[in-house]
Amino acid sequence: MVNWFWKRAPQRRTLKLRSRGEASGTTRVDFAELAPELNRFLGQAAYLQLGYFETLSRGIRGTQELARKEALSRAAGAALDKHRGIVQVIAERGDDPTQVMLPFRENLDEFRRKTIGERQEETLLAVYLTAGMLDDFYLALAGSYGETGERVAAILRQDDRGGEIVSIIQETIESDDEWRSLLSMWGRRLVGDTLLVCRDALRPGRLVADDQRIEPVYTELMGAHARRMDAMGLAS
């Protein structure tokens, strides 16, 4: 298990992780002040959505099947809409969105490279699962930023057209049990790298050893991940 924690805890607040599609059953965890400064939060959130748009757009070019092209175009458009929404928030604050995102480009591009599979189906599964985990996490952090956080949360809650990807994955695994086994294993491998992105989203310099405080966050994120896997018919 990864250890990420904070050096001081003079104040506590409540961070809520929401499982996608669920109205209740969330876990509330008290933290020290972990939330990064606002532009760090906005820059990472905006660049992540841009990365998903780029990956899905490449998927469109990489398939000859018209129905799949259309499905991926809808999912890519949803990611681009989220990116544009967060960029607008940044611009309205008087900042240059490119400069706000730039410090996170290298690390997030590396994350994207790690989650691109040898086959398109692996990459699509990675987009769906990692976007789900990270949207949940950034929704939790958004509660730290008042009205601006509320705007970003509303953007992140927009329909990501993930159902388009789920349909492709389900058709794939129903056609061949070897695909089911392969994608189940791939889905499990994504968790560690995604949790590291969550770690990097937090305020630098606040990490101390405190497993009991952070453990519920991991538990909830991985629980939501397992539910997404199970809903697609993949063993988690």
Score class of each variant (00 low, 15 high):
2 V>N: 03
5 F>H: 02
9 A>H: 00
10 P>A: 04
13 R>Q: 10
14 T>R: 09
16 K>P: 02
16 K>D: 00
20 R>E: 09
20 R>H: 07
22 E>P: 02
30 D>I: 13
30 D>P: 09
31 F>Y: 13
31 F>W: 08
31 F>V: 14
33 E>C: 00
33 E>H: 10
35 A>M: 04
36 P>L: 09
36 P>I: 02
45 A>Y: 01
46 A>D: 03
46 A>M: 11
48 L>N: 03
51 G>Q: 15
54 E>S: 15
57 S>Y: 15
58 R>C: 04
58 R>D: 14
62 G>Y: 07
70 E>W: 09
75 A>M: 00
79 A>V: 12
79 A>K: 15
81 D>K: 08
81 D>L: 11
82 K>L: 08
83 H>V: 03
84 R>E: 03
87 V>Y: 04
88 Q>S: 09
89 V>Y: 04
89 V>Q: 09
89 V>N: 02
91 A>N: 05
95 D>E: 14
95 D>A: 14
100 V>E: 12
103 P>V: 08
105 R>W: 00
105 R>I: 03
105 R>A: 01
107 N>M: 02
108 L>T: 08
108 L>V: 09
109 D>W: 08
111 F>N: 04
113 R>T: 08
113 R>L: 05
113 R>A: 08
116 I>R: 08
121 E>K: 05
123 T>L: 05
125 L>K: 05
128 Y>H: 04
128 Y>P: 01
128 Y>V: 02
128 Y>M: 11
132 G>M: 03
139 L>M: 06
139 L>K: 10
141 L>E: 04
143 G>P: 06
143 G>C: 00
144 S>M: 14
145 Y>Q: 12
146 G>M: 08
147 E>V: 10
148 T>L: 11
149 G>A: 06
150 E>N: 04
155 I>M: 00
160 D>E: 06
161 R>G: 11
165 I>P: 06
167 S>K: 08
167 S>I: 05
175 S>K: 13
177 D>Q: 15
178 E>C: 06
179 W>N: 12
180 R>I: 09
182 L>C: 07
184 S>N: 02
185 M>T: 13
185 M>N: 14
187 G>A: 10
188 R>P: 01
190 L>R: 00
194 T>E: 06
195 L>I: 15
197 V>P: 03
198 C>D: 00
202 L>G: 06
205 G>V: 01
206 R>G: 06
207 L>N: 06
209 A>K: 14
209 A>P: 09
210 D>V: 12
210 D>H: 12
213 R>F: 00
213 R>S: 02
214 I>H: 10
216 P>Q: 10
220 E>A: 13
221 L>C: 15
223 G>V: 01
226 A>L: 01
229 M>Y: 08
231 A>K: 10
232 M>D: 01
233 G>S: 11
234 L>A: 11
234 L>I: 00
235 A>D: 15
